[in-house]
Amino acid sequence: MSRNASLAAAVALAVASSPAFAEVQMFKGDLSGGAETPPSASKGVGSIAVTLDPKTRKISWKGYFVGLEGQELKAHFHGPAKAGEKAAPVLPVEALEETFQGSATLDAKQVKQLEDGQWYFNIHSAKHPEGELRGQLNRVR
Rank of each mutant, 00 (worst) to 15 (best):
residue 33 G to T: 02
residue 60 S to D: 14
residue 120 Y to I: 05
residue 72 E to L: 11
residue 51 T to R: 06
residue 6 S to Q: 15
residue 118 Q to T: 02
residue 43 K to L: 11
residue 53 D to F: 05
residue 109 K to R: 14
residue 138 N to P: 00
residue 48 I to F: 02
residue 77 F to W: 03
residue 4 N to I: 09
residue 62 K to S: 14
residue 95 A to I: 14
residue 94 E to Q: 08
residue 42 S to R: 13
residue 93 V to W: 01
residue 101 Q to A: 12
residue 12 A to L: 14
residue 27 F to S: 12
residue 118 Q to D: 05
residue 120 Y to N: 09
residue 111 V to W: 09
residue 27 F to Q: 04
residue 8 A to I: 02
residue 20 A to R: 04
residue 141 R to I: 15
residue 7 L to V: 14
residue 42 S to T: 13
residue 31 L to D: 06
residue 122 N to K: 04
residue 96 L to H: 10
residue 90 V to T: 07
residue 87 A to M: 03
residue 134 R to M: 07
residue 73 L to N: 01
residue 125 S to T: 15
residue 139 R to S: 08
residue 37 T to R: 00
residue 26 M to D: 01
residue 39 P to C: 05
residue 111 V to A: 10
residue 137 L to T: 06
residue 128 H to F: 14
residue 21 F to A: 13
residue 4 N to Y: 01
residue 138 N to Q: 06
residue 49 A to I: 06
residue 72 E to I: 09
residue 75 A to V: 00
residue 135 G to I: 08
residue 30 D to L: 12
residue 122 N to C: 03
residue 52 L to M: 03
residue 107 D to N: 15
residue 8 A to R: 11
residue 116 D to G: 04
residue 133 L to M: 05
residue 125 S to D: 11
residue 17 S to A: 07
residue 104 A to L: 02
residue 8 A to Q: 08
residue 68 L to I: 04
residue 38 P to I: 12
residue 94 E to T: 10
residue 46 G to Q: 01
residue 17 S to W: 02
residue 7 L to K: 04
residue 79 G to C: 07
residue 50 V to G: 02
residue 10 A to L: 10
residue 131 G to C: 11
residue 96 L to D: 15
residue 53 D to N: 15
residue 64 Y to C: 04
residue 86 K to M: 08
residue 21 F to D: 07
residue 43 K to C: 04
residue 3 R to N: 06
residue 86 K to F: 03
residue 30 D to Q: 09
residue 81 A to N: 09
residue 69 E to K: 07
residue 97 E to G: 00
residue 51 T to L: 02
residue 41 A to N: 10
residue 30 D to P: 00
residue 129 P to Q: 05
residue 119 W to M: 14
residue 99 T to N: 08
residue 19 P to C: 07
residue 103 S to V: 11
residue 113 Q to N: 13
residue 66 V to W: 06
residue 19 P to A: 03
residue 127 K to T: 12
residue 74 K to G: 00
residue 47 S to P: 00
residue 99 T to R: 14
residue 27 F to R: 07
residue 123 I to V: 12
residue 52 L to R: 08
residue 79 G to Q: 03
residue 9 A to C: 05
residue 61 W to N: 12
residue 29 G to I: 07
residue 98 E to P: 02
residue 76 H to K: 10
residue 61 W to I: 09
residue 132 E to D: 10
residue 13 L to R: 13
residue 36 E to Y: 10
residue 101 Q to S: 10
residue 67 G to D: 02
residue 98 E to N: 06
residue 89 P to R: 00
residue 42 S to H: 13
residue 11 V to L: 15
residue 100 F to N: 07
residue 121 F to L: 03
residue 38 P to R: 03
residue 72 E to A: 10
residue 100 F to I: 00
residue 45 V to G: 05
residue 1 M to K: 08
residue 12 A to C: 04
residue 7 L to H: 12
residue 129 P to E: 03
residue 20 A to L: 14
residue 79 G to I: 05
residue 32 S to K: 09
residue 90 V to P: 00
residue 120 Y to H: 11
residue 125 S to I: 01
residue 123 I to W: 06
residue 97 E to I: 05
residue 62 K to I: 07
residue 103 S to E: 15
residue 100 F to E: 09
residue 55 K to P: 00
residue 13 L to D: 12
residue 24 V to P: 00
residue 6 S to D: 08
residue 45 V to Q: 04
residue 4 N to S: 12
residue 113 Q to L: 06
